[in-house]
């Protein structure tokens, strides 16, 4: 199984290398293009893809729900709504203020949706109902966003529309250090909770009976997942499907649920999905396809196949 993880790593390195030397303009080794355009793109793909995948895994374990994910449960959408509100409302402030405020709002949006979801879980809402609630939160947020868009002026609108398409190319090289710093801060701590995550695999009650401090761990999981989702949403816009399908693909590929082995694989598969989407865009420069369109084409069938296989189980 370690071998399979190494295989994933090699694939990532190959694709990363290819995306560095090949772009819409074809092969080129011009340093300025590589450093200014392609390297930021590749790094953003790696952190954003990996983080979304890990956030999906955390949510699936936390909610004991194989269909949970940042997009399905409405966390991405909630985060987007808060960012959209910020973009429209904060005209005229300095750029630094805009950036940090936006990151903060993005995080608050994610936490807000998580709080709603946890409230419902505590009232014993079923797993299926929770998913439907998440989808409803999503459409509620979209409605809110479209109203904000209608109310806003042309300049903000342009900014907003570019962002709302979702892309790994929105991060410019001056922003890159901040993006990477936040990403590492959101992802690295997960490693310290591998044991608790394993205990959570059985159920929250079993985890508690094995000595997990539930209240503390709940806060930690949710904060980390919200941080991961909000960093991606703020910098790249709402990106779908990576979070929900990466854990399934990783488990299916490794035939393993042990977090020590699964977690790196989930992170790697998230990166690979981001790379594949970016690769398709790069190979078809004339079509200008969006990342989310490609991820939807990959993601939806994967979920349907998963549901078909699990049809004999009650969700």
């Amino acid at each position: 199984m370690i071998f399979k993880n190494i295989l994933l790593l090699i694939l990532i390195l190959l694709l990363a290398f290819f995306l560095l030397v090949y772009g819409e303009t074809g092969f080129s080794l011009e340093p300025s293009i590589i450093w200014e355009l392609r390297l930021p793109k590749v790094l953003v793909c790696m952190f954003a893809g990996g983080m979304l995948a890990v956030a999906g895994l955390l949510m699936q374990i936390f909610f004991q729900n194989p269909l949970a994910g940042p997009d399905v449960l409405g966390v991405s959408a909630g985060s987007s709504l808060f960012v959209a509100f910020w973009m429209m409302a904060s005209v005229g402030f300095s750029q630094t203020f805009l950036d940090w405020g936006g990151s903060m709002m993005s995080f608050l949006g994610a936490i807000f949706v998580f709080s709603i979801l946890i409230f419902f879980v505590h009232k014993n809402m079923s797993r299926v109902s929770l998913i439907i609630t998440g989808l409803l939160i999503s459409s509620f947020a979209s409605s809110g966003i479209s109203i904000l868009v209608n109310m806003s002026q042309a300049l903000q609108l342009k900014n907003y529309l570019a962002w709302s398409m979702g892309s790994f190319r929105n991060v410019t090289s001056p922003d890159l250090p901040r993006f990477i710093l936040l990403s590492v801060a959101a992802t690295l701590p997960v490693l310290f909770f591998i044991k608790s995550l394993n205990q959570f695999l059985l159920s929250e009650n079993y985890a508690k009976s094995m000595g997990v401090h539930i209240k503390r761990i709940r806060v930690i999981f949710i904060t980390l997942a919200a941080l991961q989702i909000s960093v991606v949403t703020f910098f790249c816009g709402p990106i779908g499907f990576i979070g929900i399908i990466s854990p399934h693909l990783a488990r299916q590929f490794l035939k393993c649920s042990q977090l020590k082995i699964l977690l790196p694989a989930v992170f790697c598969i998230g990166i690979l999905l981001a790379f594949v989407a970016e690769l398709i865009i790069v190979l078809n420069p004339t079509w200008s396809i969006s990342v989310n369109a490609i991820l939807g084409l990959i993601g939806a069938p994967v979920i349907v196949i998963y549901l078909y296989r699990q049809r004999h189980l009650s969700v």
């Binding site: 004991q64 194989p66 310290f192 591998i194 044991k195 394993n198 205990q199 695999l201 059985l202 159920s203 009650n205 079993y206 094995m210 000595g211 488990r251 490794l254 035939k255 393993c256 649920s257 042990q258 020590k260 189980l313």
Partner: peptide, 27 residues
Amino acid sequence: TEKIQVDFLKVVELISLGRSPYTNWLG
């Protein structure tokens, strides 16, 4: 009584979780 729904978890891995009150931070 609650049913455990977890794919690809081996019996020995599940039973080993019972040792977690005694193991280190990595389990």
